[in-house]
Amino acid sequence: MRENRLRTLFAQQQLALSGWVSMGNALLAEVIAHSGYDAVTVDLQHGPFSIDAALPMLQAISSTPAVPLVRCSENSLGEINKLLDAGAYGVICPLINTAADAERFVRACHYSPRGGRSYGPARGFLYGGADYFTHANATLLTLAMIETREGYANAEAILQTPDLDGIFIGPSDLAIELGLAPDAYDDVRLNEAIDHLLALARKLGKYVGIFAGTMEMAQRMKGIGMDLVVPGTDIQQIKAEGARRVSALR
């Protein structure tokens, strides 16, 4: 089966960077994937598109060295199965609040005997290889999002879920849950919560990823040892670069 390069980078304790596609456009996904990212995440939670649009984006990403990831819209066996069958090599699942949520997520991502994923990965074979079924459980990444007070309080139990590879921190929603503005990325309370989650994951041998709303935050997350950092969405980066060019020419 094709290597999951993120696992290799994590094992080498090297930072992995993921692009983030929230617009339902395969060409845009391909361009981002050619920008040097280690992975590109197709976002079905906040992206205004469905699985039908995600498929060509995954195909476009798969034509590049970047690992195709998805953020599913919810903790749904049916949706997660379809996204994995379509060739996603890892799933970020939002709103994991309890160990039971995490277990349900892991089971959706794994074939029996570990899970309840149904067999039928038509495109998974094309991207992963003929031995996809044999190695899928050990190759595909499972990252549970911690972004609520409940999820934060239950983080240790969530991280102890067997075969869950790690967590992905949603800092904006977590900030809101802490009574802060969604972009309060420099607030001490948010950063203490992030440090706590990272320490828990390290203690339990799990990976940690995070969305960084600014480049300053991305650099800070790199500095504290995050495994995976997303330095902004496609929309944010296009807008920021457009504004920079306009400002320079004004």
Rank of each mutant, 00 (worst) to 15 (best):
E241M: 12
I32A: 00
R149N: 14
R202G: 13
G78C: 10
I210Q: 06
A100V: 11
I169W: 03
A54L: 04
A88I: 04
D227Y: 03
L141N: 02
L174N: 01
R104A: 13
H46C: 09
Q160Y: 03
L228R: 01
M57K: 00
V42P: 00
V246H: 13
G209H: 04
L174W: 04
G242C: 11
G232W: 02
P121T: 07
S22N: 14
Q45P: 02
D195F: 10
A175Q: 09
G179E: 11
R244L: 10
F168S: 05
A153E: 15
T214G: 03
L190Y: 04
G128K: 01
Y119L: 13
L58K: 00
Y207N: 12
D173G: 07
R114V: 11
D52Y: 09
Y119Q: 13
A240D: 15
S22Y: 08
E30I: 01
T161V: 02
R149Q: 14
M221N: 04
S73L: 09
Y89I: 10
R114K: 11
A122E: 15
L17V: 09
D43F: 02
P68G: 05
A243L: 15
D43R: 00
H34D: 15
N191Y: 01
T134K: 08
A86G: 13
G151A: 07
Q59L: 11
T148S: 15
A88M: 06
L9A: 12
L6V: 03
V42D: 00
Y132Q: 10
P56W: 08
A54K: 03
G151C: 08
D38P: 06
P94L: 05
G90L: 04
G151W: 01
A26M: 06
T139R: 07
G170H: 05
R245I: 12
H196E: 15
R123P: 02
S73F: 08
G124I: 05
F211S: 00
Q13G: 05
E79D: 04
L204Q: 13
E103C: 04
E192I: 09
M23S: 12
P162T: 04
R244Q: 14
R123A: 07
K206Q: 12
G124Y: 06
E241T: 15
G115F: 07
A218G: 10
L27R: 10
Q219D: 14
M217L: 10
E30N: 09
T8Q: 14
P48F: 05
R7V: 07
L58Y: 00
L77F: 09
M1K: 04
K239W: 11
I210V: 14
G179C: 07
G116N: 15
